[in-house]
Amino acid sequence: MNEQQQMIAEMADDLFADLSARKTSDSSWEAIESVGLPSLMVDADRGGFGGNWCDAVIVFRLAGYRALALPVVEATIAAALADGAFDGRGTIAPAAEGTLAGDRFDGTITGAAWAEGAAYVVAPAPGGGSMILDMAQASIGGAANIAGEPRANLAFQGATARRLPADIFALGALARAAQIAGALDASLAMSVAYVNERKQFGRPLAKFQAVQQSLATFACEAAAANCAALGAAQAQGRGDGDYAIAAAKLRANRAVGVGTALAHQVHGAIGFTHEYPLHPLTRRLWAWRSEFGGDSHWSGVLGDRICARGADQFWADLTAVTD
């Protein structure tokens, strides 16, 4: 991390830790806005930080680490894409169905995060690219993901939409990979602390070799998710994130299975209770594994791309995206 990233990370982590410790409310979001976090990737001449995707992934990872129940990730991406066209908090969604004729959208957007109170939404456009719409035109059907995070379906009739070249589905996947990396690290830290403290058969669980080996396996998976997320952010920053984001979301998704299983296993029954703070992490991890593309989606995208290029291009293409 460079100096600016260190500063952003410290600021975000202090804030997220503080906000996660208490029940979130409207004033919680004001705390996020007051430090300007959603403007992280907005150009400096528009009053933002002018940050890049590597900066953003640091913040997104920390939001995941703290299981932050606020839409800072979605608002940050939406603001970066809106480029000052809207006031207020924006959000993003992974899917839309309907027709986009000229600048008129008829149809539904599904899975919009924290839609209540959002001023605008960015979603995939029918036929490719993305579109941005004013939420004042939407009728909102409330729902939530399995972690209880608000996810709404939005109905639009004759709504004004503006096309954007960005691939919001991929950008959402990049963000979720970073959140997964953070939540895995936090689950690992919680697991390590627990097994050092909890005694059975007269000694801490940490002294049992089976427990040690399980958590070592977990640590490797968390490490892989972290490297994947940062690598994808770097690639996106270079303007060629397609391959890397597909690989990173897929790798992070695969780490979720191992990580959540081992976190719960070493915690025993207490980790399965509503009272104990492991589930805000693990339930998010299970939800995020599906959001913006599950394993079958991204492995299909990557597999198709590689097969279309052929065996003898596999390695050359893999290295060309970083050189």
Partner: peptide, 29 residues
Amino acid sequence: IRRAGAHPDTAVRALIGRLAAETWTLRLM
């Protein structure tokens, strides 16, 4: 990948994608 050809079945395609993602990640690590 050579055996899969340009139009592999779903399972092989998914496996290739998965192994590529792992290769890509390990390379960065």
